[in-house]
Computed example of a mutant assay.
Amino acid sequence: MSGPERAGASHAGRSRAADLVRQCVVAVSAVVAVVGAFVGSGAAGGTRIQDAAGGALAADATPIAPAGPAFAIWTLIYFGLLVYAVWQFLPAQRAADRQRRLAYPVAASLLLNAAWILSVQAGLLWLSVAVIAVLLAVLCWAYWTCVRHPPHHLADALITDGTIGLYLGWVSIATAANVAAALAASGFDGAGIPAEVWAIVVIAVATIAVAALGVASRGGLAPMLAASWGLAWIAVGRLTGEPHSVPVAIAAIVGIVVIVASTLTARVIAARTRRLGPVRD
C-alpha cells in the first residue's frame, strides 16, 4: 500500500472511530435525559417538578404558567429523542455530514435538560433559569443547523427536524414561564407594573421570537406547533384556573395567531419560490 493510500485508510479509520463515539454520546445522553425526566415526574417516588421549589412552577404560580396538561408534550418530545438516538445509530447515518453536525448540540441539549430538572429539584430556580437559557441557545443552534442542511428524505425530516423543532418550540415558551416563576419566587412585585401587563409583555416577546424563527426557517412547522401548544395551555389556565386573567388569555391566543400566520406565510412563499424560482423585475 502506498503512502497516500495508508494515509487515507488511517483517516477513514479515525473517522469511523469518531463517528461511533459521537453516536454513543448521543445515545447515553438520551438515556440520561429520559431517566432524569422519569425522576422529575415523580414516578420514582420523588417530588414532581410542579411541586419542587415550593411549587414555583405549578400551573397556578404565575400568569404565564401553562395548565397542567400542557406538559404532556414532553412524552412526545422524549419519544422523538429516543427515536433519534436510535436513528442516528443506524449504519447509514454513521458518516452522514448532517448527523456529524447535529450530534453534539443534541447531546448537549439532553444533558442540559437533565441539569435543569436537577436544579429545580434542588430548589435553585435562578440556576434553572441559566440552564434553560443555555438549553434554548443550544436548541436554536441545532435547529438552525437543520435549516441550513436540510434532510434528503421524509424519515430524516420527521425524526430529526421534527423532534428538534418540537423541543425548541416548547422550550421557547418554557423559558418565559421559568423566568416568571423565578421572579415571583424571589418576591418581585412588578416594580409598580401589574402582573398582567408583565405577562402580556413576556408573551409578546416569546411570540415575536417564535414567529421570527418561523420566517427564518422558511416555514418550519414543528416549532410553530409546540409553541402554539404552550400558548394555548397558558390561555386555558388563565380562563379556567388561577390566577384568572382574560387579558393574558387573549394575549396568548393572539400569539398563536401571529405565530401560525407568520410561519405558514413563510412556508407558502418558500414553496412558491422553489416551484417558480425567485421573482425578478
Rank of each mutant, 00 (worst) to 15 (best):
S2N: 13
S2L: 09
G8W: 00
S10F: 14
A12N: 07
R14M: 12
S15N: 07
S15M: 12
R16A: 15
A18M: 13
A18D: 10
L20N: 08
R22C: 12
R22Y: 12
Q23R: 14
C24W: 14
A30R: 05
V31T: 15
V34P: 13
A37S: 14
A43F: 07
Q50C: 02
A52G: 05
G54W: 14
G55R: 06
D60K: 02
T62L: 13
T62F: 11
A65Y: 01
A70W: 00
A72Y: 05
W74G: 11
T75Q: 00
L76S: 06
Y78H: 08
G80R: 01
L82I: 15
V83A: 15
Y84S: 08
A85Q: 04
W87H: 15
W87A: 11
Q88V: 00
R98C: 11
R100Y: 11
R100N: 14
R100A: 12
A108P: 14
S109P: 15
A115S: 13
W116L: 05
V131W: 05
L135P: 00
L135G: 06
W144V: 09
C146R: 01
P150S: 09
P150G: 10
L158D: 02
I159W: 04
D161W: 06
D161N: 14
G162W: 01
T163W: 08
G165C: 09
G165S: 10
Y167M: 04
W170A: 00
A180I: 03
A181Q: 01
A181W: 04
L183A: 10
F188L: 03
F188Q: 04
D189A: 15
A191V: 03
P194F: 07
E196H: 10
W198P: 12
I200Q: 00
V201F: 12
A206K: 03
I208W: 11
A209Q: 06
A212Q: 11
G214M: 04
V215P: 03
A226K: 00
G230S: 08
G230C: 07
G230H: 02
G230A: 02
G230D: 05
A232H: 07
W233V: 02
I234L: 00
L239K: 04
E242T: 11
P243R: 00
V248P: 02
A251V: 05
A252S: 07
A252Q: 05
A252L: 01
V258H: 10
V260Y: 02
A261E: 04
L264I: 01
A266T: 09
A271C: 02
P278M: 13
R280C: 07
D281W: 10
